Amino acid sequence: MSASLDHVPAAKSALVLFSGGQDSSVCLAWALTHFERVETIGFDYGQRHAIEMTTRTTVLEKFREVFPLAATRLGEDHVCDLRGFGAVAESSLTRETEIVMTERGLPSSFVPGRNLVFFVYAAAVADRRGLDHLVGGMCETDFSGYPDCRNETLQAMQTVLQLGVERPFEIHTPLMWIDKAQTWAMSLELGGQPLVDLILEETTTCYKGERGERHPWGYGCGECPACQLRKTGFEHFIENAQPAER
């Protein structure tokens, strides 16, 4: 961390759960406009799209290059090895199986308790680093039914962390009530076309980690739920951005 960030108080400091995907990149941009000191944390849980562990580093570098706020406010990046958890919580995200709906009404890509585990580790790092705010890209609008993305779940998690760590943690979810088209619009509002371009070119959202073909909405297989949400959201974003016909 640069010396200029050493003395930023905890109340003005945040830790962003950062995968290097579209949502976490928008959340990083949001955090940089709301806090004076921002650090990031990533999780290696044996995900099929392990390429995100590489691309997230590239995205962070691009943030520092392109955005003045990032150059002055973006601090250390942390990576946690959660492969043991990934092996226990098997899903289509941690093994080569088709993504389908299960008997529980949840997609097989659901990793039980993943976001809860993420926040526990993030809280431990944040406590050590002196950061009172935790930022995540969870969303109820486009959340595929994942119960650990619900606002109610994360509000309860905030209370658990405040009690369990005895620190005034606050969990922020800037995307909670917006859809993917609005997420694209938020990226334009926060960072202009440079942020939209960065997300299109550098971020990885695809559950299969495909980066072979560049689509209008970015890279991905175009078939998994994450790609479908990103693709549809981008198309609606472009439609809404077009000037109305007279």
Rank of each mutant, 00 (worst) to 15 (best):
A31T: 02
A31K: 01
L32S: 03
L32E: 03
L32R: 02
L32C: 04
T33M: 02
T33W: 03
H34V: 04
H34M: 09
F35R: 02
E36D: 09
E36Y: 05
R37W: 01
R37Q: 02
R37Y: 00
R37K: 14
V38I: 01
V38Y: 00
V38R: 01
V38C: 01
V38G: 00
E39F: 01
T40Y: 00
I41V: 15
G42N: 01
G42V: 02
G42S: 10
G42C: 03
F43C: 07
D44M: 04
Y45N: 08
Y45A: 09
G46K: 13
R48K: 15
R48N: 09
R48L: 11
R48V: 13
H49F: 02
A50E: 10
A50D: 12
I51C: 11
I51L: 13
I51D: 08
I51M: 05
E52A: 06
E52D: 05
E52M: 08
M53R: 14
M53Q: 13
T55W: 11
R56M: 04
R56K: 06
T57Y: 00
T58M: 04
V59K: 03
V59C: 06
L60R: 04
E61Q: 09
E61H: 13
E61G: 07
K62Y: 05
K62V: 03
K62M: 06
F63H: 07
R64Q: 09
R64F: 02
E65Y: 03
E65G: 05
E65V: 06
E65I: 02
V66G: 02
F67I: 08
F67D: 06
P68H: 09
P68M: 06
P68A: 12
P68W: 06
P68Q: 10
L69N: 07
A70V: 13
A70C: 13
A71G: 10
T72N: 06
R73L: 04
R73M: 07
R73A: 04
L74R: 00
L74M: 01
L74K: 01
G75L: 08
G75F: 04
E76H: 08
E76I: 05
E76A: 10
D77R: 01
D77N: 06
H78R: 13
H78D: 07
H78Q: 09
V79F: 06
V79K: 07
V79T: 09
V79S: 08
C80Q: 15
C80Y: 11
D81H: 09
L82D: 06
L82Y: 12
L82T: 05
L82V: 08
L82Q: 14
L82P: 11
L82C: 12
G84P: 10
G84M: 12
F85R: 02
A87Y: 13
V88T: 14
V88A: 09
A89E: 08
A89R: 10
E90K: 13
E90F: 11
S91G: 05
S91A: 10
S92M: 03
S92R: 07
L93C: 15
L93Y: 15
R95F: 04
R95I: 06
E96R: 15
E96C: 12
E96M: 13
E96P: 07
T97I: 14
T97Y: 05
T97E: 10
T97R: 14
E98S: 09
E98F: 05
I99A: 14
M101I: 15
M101L: 15
M101S: 15
T102E: 14
T102F: 12
E103L: 15
E103M: 12
R104T: 15
R104G: 13
G105D: 12
G105S: 08
